[in-house]
Design a protein around this nucleic acid. Structure first.
Length: 810
RNA sequence: GCGGGCGUAGCCGAAUUGGCACAGGCGCCAGACUUAGGAUCUGGUGGGUUCGCCCAAUGUGGGUUCGAGUCCCACCGCCCGCACCA
């Protein structure tokens, strides 16, 4: 009788839910395990690539539950965002209706996979119960000066008609839709993440259970540079500007200075200079370019302003240029150019015929252009002879004595731009009063709920702005007429704290109960895609630190262990709807069932690596399951009630070794080899049942019991059914994970390999506790070994009992 | 350019510590069962072989070591991230 998954799967899915098997509360008597997957956008249809992640998380939930932990595995929805809004623009369906339909679909798909969660804690960021606390959080940041509004040059996506955070601009294009982003000067809301730059950077060192790759990406993104900022004066004027450099030791080599085209001083410098018209033409050209065009241009270009700056260390006058290779967004938007020690300055100096002075002695064999390495300072007055770090200290001290500069630390990280000119997000709870300025919405008036609008289409401002009843309010302070802020928050604000809300999801009076958070946090295992390395993962760390500083959260870091899974690749691209290469699980559910799909997802390759979709893979894991099923139902081989013999004991030994292997593999996230080990065990058990004398009933039952326990987190439906049919009682999901018996795992005899000059010449079964003397004796007595020793002199015998003897001869 | 990672069979991959290279799966070949097989089962799947074994092999070249897929150096190729960040 074949495995009837179509009948068995719904039965168990129903039972896991109705019995509340995975519903948990705080319980000090058991170790907790907080298992979270980055909550998904409810996109509706799940494809095989998605199922990979859900299977991993579900495996961990079930495994740690069997290990006796109090496992919290919640699920929720990152349900604000553009897809629902774009659908609304096209079809007129309210984003809420669209979103909630998608959630229903997606829940059914998770259930179909057999994924279990504590559904009592389900949350969705588009619900007022949730985004009320987004708004509350915003107000906390506002009160602490960590949320502010300012006019700034920001990234604007012309297609989505909204601003974007720096983190959401990838290669100069909108992360969502791929449209080239343009710069606009707009008044926008920011979170002051830069105040936390040093802590976000330093605490990366504590995240030892995070992938190196992600830590490095965050480190680079935060981009700490130690250096020096000092003031330069413009000759024959009363103007001046600040420059930032990481190489103040090379200041004597400055032969020109460069300002970014957007630098505020540029206008004054150009006006009335000899080269004014030329400079204006250049600025106009570069200003029109998007960043991508500037990059694509590749070549450095610039124009002389007609003015000179005074080098503070030696009084020399150096020309001031405007050039495209200096960015307004970093440092002070102005640099001292030292072509002798900087590749970019060298390139520019060569192009425009500017002087080059070396101030660091390159090595004698140096053939390159600019020399950026260490070496004794030359042509540098009182710095001569000092190495880089000494010279830096000395010159910074000198700047400080003179009162014109100081040592500083620059970060590449910019403040997080969180306002969006879109409808389907959490409204920013601020009222703009002509008298009192920016006034927080009083807490008892939260949440600020979306009004319905006629038109969701973006018009360069939030659709909320077209609803007068929403916009026009009384100022909470003075009672006079005022207007609401109409921008909504970046959805990354919602996702920066949802894992805290899971701990106490229905609290109506507080964002969460700190006691519940104290019990569950930090997240023990966080699972998600590496694409969030500098987005969500950075924001969440920031918000956790803010809440920590507010005394609401004990931990400084939210995610103790991070696992970033690989993608599923098909036709050379990540499986995704937009690429049109998705494989729907439907036909695999119908033909092979959920467990075969789960096993395939686990078996397809190392979880951290991208895996290539293979049409036959699910069939392979189904064959394995089907064999296990037929073993369990007595359709394969033969069992007998007979006395035990050494072969029976060996079957148990193999089983216990598999328990050890599978346990260790799951603990180190080698799910693919854990499945392989179970396939190997199944093959061994089949051989055992097919042997001449058949299997001994008691032995087989025990081995099979252990195999079912190990497979329970991987293929839960079939194993639950087999467990129930075995008449053991109880639900498999809450059975204890098996322990291996060390005496069975231990090999009594071991195959010792004997090498001559590193080549294997013989294999001999020896006692596992053989000593070195005996091992050497056995090895040298081997006839096969002797044949290779013939007429040669033994130089040395390397003995590593009980595994290896290597005879070195000449 | 800087940073992170990878390269093992026809394909996906295994090899926690330097110690039998290739577990497990896919595909393919042969056989069994069968009216039939795209089901299932058994065996095989680098080369040579006198069937005892022998030889070759982890991108390329070198090094360390009794011993290297693993460590070191150089090179080739691929993937990812950041990128005119001063």
């Amino acid at each position: 009788m074949a495995y009837d998954f179509a009948a068995i799967e719904p039965k168990w899915q129903e039972l896991w839910e109705s019995e509340g098997v995975f519903h948990v509360t705080e319980d000090e008597s058991r170790p907790k395990f907080y298992n979270v997957q980055m909550y998904p956008y409810p996109s509706g249809e799940l494809h095989m690539g998605h199922l990979r992640n859900y299977t991993y998380v579900d495996l961990l939930t079930r495994y740690h539950r069997m290990r006796g932990k109090n496992v919290l595995s919640p699920m929720g929805w990152d349900s604000f965002g553009l897809p629902a809004e774009n659908a609304a623009i096209q079809t007129g369906v309210h984003p809420r209706e669209f979103t909630e339909r998608q959630i229903v679909t997606m829940k059914a798909q998770l259930r179909r996979l057999g994924a279990v969660y504590d559904w009592t804690r389900e949350l969705a960021s588009h619900t007022p119960e949730y985004y009320k606390w987004d708004q509350w959080l915003f107000l906390q940041l506002f009160e602490r000066g960590l949320a502010y509004k300012k006019r700034a040059r920001v990234n604007w996506c012309p297609k989505d008609q909204t601003v974007l955070a720096n983190e959401q601009v990838v290669d100069g294009a909108c992360e969502r839709c791929g449209t080239v982003v343009v710069k606009r000067d707009l008044e926008q809301w920011f979170f002051k993440i830069t105040d936390y730059a040093d802590r976000l950077l330093n605490d990366l060192a504590t995240l030892t259970e995070w992938p190196e790759r992600v830590r490095v990406m965050q480190e680079n993104w935060i981009g700490r540079s130690e250096g020096c900022q000092f003031r330069m004066l413009v000759a024959d004027t009363d103007l001046g500007f600040e420059v930032f450099t990481t190489r103040p030791d090379t200041v004597f080599g400055m032969t020109f200075a460069v300002l970014a085209p957007e630098h505020p001083l540029v206008e004054q410098l150009m006006t009335g200079s000899d080269t004014e018209s030329e400079a204006r033409a250049y600025i106009e050209r570069t200003a029109r370019q998007s960043e991508i065009e500037r990059l694509a241009e590749g070549d450095k270009s610039g124009v002389f302003t007609g003015r000179f700056a005074i080098d503070p260390v030696n009084g020399r006058q150096v020309p001031i240029y405007i050039a495209n290779y200096v960015l307004m967004g970093y440092g002070t938007g102005a640099i001292m150019a030292v072509p002798g020690q900087d590749d970019r300055d060298w390139e520019f100096a060569e192009k425009y015929g500017l002087e080059i002075i070396r101030t660091v002695e390159p090595p004698p064999d140096w053939t390159g252009k600019a020399y950026t390495g260490d070496g004794p300072a030359i042509n540098s007055d009182f710095l001569d002879g000092l190495d880089m770090s000494e010279a830096k200290k000395r010159i910074i001290a000198w700047f400080e004595e003179q009162g014109i500069g100081r040592g500083t630390i620059q970060y590449r990280l910019r403040d997080w731009l969180i306002s969006r000119q879109r409808y389907w997000g959490s409204p920013i709870p601020i009222i703009i009063c002509p008298r009192d300025g920016l006034v927080p919405v009083p807490e008892d008036q939260l949440p600020v709920v979306h009004p319905d609008v006629k038109d969701y289409a973006p018009q360069g401002r939030s659709p909320l702005a077209s609803v007068p009843e929403f916009v026009n309010v009384e100022c909470p302070k003075c009672g006079g007429p005022a207007e609401r802020e109409t921008d909504t928050m970046d959805t990354f604000v919602d996702s920066s704290w949802y894992y805290l809300r899971y701990c106490d999801p229905h609290n109506e009076s507080r964002i969460f109960d700190p006691a519940a958070v104290r019990y569950w946090m930090p997240v023990d295992q966080y699972v998600g895609g590496v694409e969030h390395a500098v987005l969500h993962l950075l924001y969440a760390r920031f918000i956790t630190k803010v809440l920590h500083d507010m005394g609401l959260v004990d931990v400084e870091e939210p995610f103790a262990r991070l696992f970033t899974q690989g993608m599923l690749v098909k036709d050379g691209a990540k499986m995704s709807k937009s690429k049109g290469n998705v494989v729907s699980p439907d036909r695999y559910y119908t033909r092979y069932g959920a467990d075969a799909i789960r096993l395939f997802e686990l078996f397809i390759g190392p979880p951290t690596d991208d895996a290539i979709w293979n049409d036959n893979g699910v069939e392979g894991t189904f064959r394995f399951l089907d064999r296990v099923w037929r073993m369990g139902t007595g359709e394969i081989g033969r069992v007998a009630d007979r006395d035990e013999n050494p072969g029976d004991r060996e079957v148990l030994a193999v089983t216990h070794r598999t328990v050890k292997k599978v346990t260790e593999d799951i603990d180190r996230f080698h799910f693919n080899t854990a499945v392989a080990a179970l396939m190997g065990l199944a093959n061994s058990l089949i051989d055992y049942l097919n042997s001449d004398e058949g299997g001994r009933r008691a032995t087989f039952d025990e081995a099979f019991r252990l195999m079912i326990l190990m497979m329970a987190p991987m293929a839960p439906h079939m194993t639950h059914e087999l467990w129930e049919r075995s008449g053991r009682g109880g639900m498999l999901a809450v059975e204890a994970w098996p322990e291996w018996d060390p005496t069975l795992v231990r090999q009594e005899t071991v195959t010792m390999i004997i090498q001559v000059n590193g080549k294997v010449r013989d294999r001999i079964e020896v006692a596992a506790d053989i000593d070195a003397v005996e091992a050497e004796k056995v090895a040298l007595e081997s006839a096969k070994v002797k044949a290779h020793l013939d007429g040669k002199k033994i130089e040395k015998v390397v003995v590593r009992p009980p595994n290896l003897v290597n005879v070195v001869v000449r």
